[in-house]
Design a protein around this nucleic acid. Structure first.
Lengths: 335, 335
DNA sequence: TTGAAAGCGCTAACAA
DNA sequence: TTGTTAGCGCTTTCAA
């Protein structure tokens, strides 16, 4: 059971008695080939078990039919859903996906982008909350189109696909305010991720302003992105006298919810919770968690679709795409 | 801000006044270069912003420093954790990861493997419950080492990294039997995935036998892999008079749990539940779900480590690696 | 320590 | 409709 040293295009050409060019033509579906020779070539390909070498092809054509995806963590349900959307449409257009995890470390993000560039990817989709200035620079230096998915570039230099975060947060905060809460806490990610936090804060403040509620800095929290962090921050939130919270992460939200219930709070009667990512986590708990609804899969899919156009040198009309969001009312909010 | 047509190795050589070979040597850390010329080359590389073209390199050296990862679905928390383990050690050894989702469709699995082969990956890590015979064949025809992660090849032809599924299920079932249950249901994946189901069944039957409980076919269930499926199957399970269940999927387990509680069952007093994947889902619910504990990240990491050895033509002592599993006792089982 | 030169397997003008 | 012929950018003997 030994591995055959795979046949090359030369072997096929030789076998049929035609030139390399002809074989190349039939392999690439070029029409300028007589049917009869096409047949013969196809047969030879079959017999020899010839599979084109994509690397050689890439070198010669300067197209690798491979795109790079840079993301914080495959393990993160939010991003992995975007990734799935990306992958599905990538396949649809016959691109393969080179995946890199960065944990949102700017150093690794920069390395990832450079590495992808040296691998000659035809395009890159970048995900990550914060768009570090240096990362942005190396991205714009890359000789391939890049589109951001679920991430914002405050300078709007790069094409991107998102929801309107500001509006979404404003609506979420507005919803609990409307239910009578005037001390609503907000929890965002690690402070390093300035942009992410900023966007949320803007929406938060807009909602307060609209309800004529004074901004209280003590109602601001930032945590790591996991269940335990939610458990921990909940105590501090409780201490502020807040009666509602809007969070950036679903696991954090559930951590908060469980802590509060353990400490005598009824959800949603005594305390309301809204989270942001609408992952599966929000539906397996009791009560289910109210969340901003995001078309996660579509964000990835649309971003990838956009990238295919860019790789094709097509002109893009709208480069800053905002997909619609919703508010999925579930058990952690009243009505 | 225009994209420079990136410099080639030729440009560097020309600039310094040395040959391509010399530049290649310093780029690849070959020691046979005089320090002074090395300096000059490095400087030129810096000045020109030269980045080696990995595609050309791949063609010439027949090594792409890229591996392929074939998996059911990035979105699946279980597999994505394996993927993270794979990616981390892949990076450690300077490999990039080409990712493909297959949804466990044999046709797509076959295509994925072939595609990866034509992209000349140096190795492949394959994940997927069932190892279809045809898939197995195309895998063994590929001219690159392949290792299975979290997947079983009943013929044991391929190197693999797993836990001992049979033993794990046996322990889980044994645990609830020990707690006094003699009617324990077991739910496995879609029947198409024969192997997966089989393995679990073997462990299940062993536990019954050890407790001298007769096997009852009506206690066998198979469902799709999501929360809603759990909700649905729960009703049927209840109808059998079962008082405990062991499931293959965490979301399904939670669906079952929530359904049962809605129908008056106290968990774990009236009904015990054990699941298999120990994902984050098991800890965000109340009660938390008892689960077989699997070193998911490590399964991926070890598989990848194994692959690096194979790609290096090193000899592997043990090809069928079984990593240790545990039983994480939480709130859905007594004591 | 360095260079010359032959590929790696394919694409893409350009000719015929 | 088909073939010839340069490359694509790099690695790798083999010599020097």
């Amino acid at each position: 059971m030994q591995k055959k040293n795979s046949a090359t295009i030369y072997d096929v050409a030789h076998r049929v008695g035609v030139s390399l060019a002809t074989v190349s033509r039939v392999v690439n579906g070029n029409s300028n080939v007589r049917d009869s020779t096409k047949r013969k070539v196809l047969d030879a390909i079959e017999e020899l078990g010839y599979h084109p070498n994509a690397v050689a092809r890439g070198l010669a054509s300067k197209k690798t039919t491979t795109i790079g995806v840079v993301m914080p963590d495959v393990t993160d349900v939010y991003y992995s859903e975007l990734a799935r959307g990306i992958d599905d449409v990538a396949n649809m257009y016959h691109y393969d996906v080179l995946l890199t995890n960065t944990d949102e470390d700017p150093v690794r993000e920069t390395m990832a982008v450079n590495n992808l560039a040296s691998k000659q990817v035809d395009g890159i989709i970048f995900m990550g909350n914060e768009l570090d200035h240096e990362v942005l620079n190396t991205i714009s230096g890359v000789n391939a189109p890049v589109v951001l998915a679920g991430s914002v570039d405050s300078e709007k230099r790069l094409p991107s696909v998102n929801i309107d975060y500001v509006a979404a947060i404003k609506e979420a905060v507005g919803a609990v305010i409307k239910n009578g809460h005037d001390r609503v806490a907000i929890v965002t990610g690690p402070v390093e991720h300035a942009i992410n936090g900023m966007h949320r804060l803007v929406g938060y403040k807009m909602a307060l302003e609209e309800a004529q509620i004074d901004f209280d800095e003590t109602l601001l929290f930032s945590t790591h992105q996991d269940y335990a962090a939610g458990l921990q921050v909940a105590e501090r939130i409780l201490a502020t006298g807040a009666t509602a919270v809007v969070t950036y992460d679903d696991e954090v939200a559930i951590g908060i919810m469980n802590y509060l219930r353990d400490h005598g709070k009824r959800i949603p009667e005594d305390f309301e919770i809204i989270t942001s990512n609408d992952t599966k986590f929000t539906i397996v708990t009791r009560p289910q968690v109210t969340s901003i609804g995001q078309p996660k899969y579509d964000i990835g899919a649309v971003a990838m679709r956009m990238l295919t156009k860019l790789m094709n040198n097509e002109v893009i009309e709208v480069t800053q795409v905002k997909l619609p969001h919703t508010l999925e009312r579930r058990g952690t909010t009243l009505n």
